Simulated scan of single mutants.
Amino acid sequence: MILALLATLSLQHAELPPIPLAGQAETVRRYDTGARQGVAVGPTDIWAVSNSTIVRFDKATGERRAEWSGDPALYPHVNSCSLIAADLVCASSNYPAAPHVSTIEVFDPAALAHRRSIALPSGIGSATWVERRADGWYVMFANYDARGSEAPRTHRDTVLVRFDDQWRPHERWTLPDSILSRLAPMSISGGGWGPDGRLYLSGHDLPELYAVDLPAGGGVLRHLETFGIEAEGQAIDWDESEPGMLYGITRRTREVLAMRVF
Rank of each mutant, 00 (worst) to 15 (best):
W173I: 07
A60R: 02
S181N: 12
K59N: 02
V261L: 12
D32R: 14
A111C: 02
E208I: 05
G62W: 11
L201S: 03
R260P: 00
L6P: 01
L88Q: 07
A216M: 01
R156V: 12
Q166W: 05
I118K: 02
H100Y: 06
H77Y: 13
L257I: 09
S82F: 00
H204V: 03
A73P: 00
L88H: 04
V256P: 06
L199D: 09
T53F: 01
H114D: 04
F262T: 13
L221S: 14
Y144T: 05
L224E: 15
L6G: 02
P109F: 11
P195M: 08
I84V: 09
S181A: 08
T128E: 12
I188A: 09
A127C: 02
E63S: 13
P169D: 11
E232Q: 15
V41W: 10
V89N: 11
I179S: 07
A258S: 01
G123T: 07
L6H: 00
R156G: 00
E15I: 03
G194P: 07
Q37M: 07
V159K: 06
F107Q: 12
H223S: 08
Q37S: 01
Q37Y: 01
L88R: 05
T44V: 05
Y247A: 05
F163P: 01
A73T: 03
L201D: 04
A235E: 06
G191W: 07
F141N: 06
L112T: 05
Y75M: 07
M140N: 04
L112I: 13
R156C: 03
A211R: 14
L199V: 09
D196F: 15
I179C: 11
G62R: 10
I46D: 10
A97K: 10
R182M: 00
V256Q: 08
S92V: 14
R30I: 00
G42S: 11
A91W: 14
V55E: 13
V159P: 00
L16E: 06
S80F: 14
F262C: 04
P243V: 10
V101P: 01
I229C: 06
S93A: 10
G218T: 08
L175H: 03
E63C: 06
L16F: 03
P207F: 14
H13A: 11
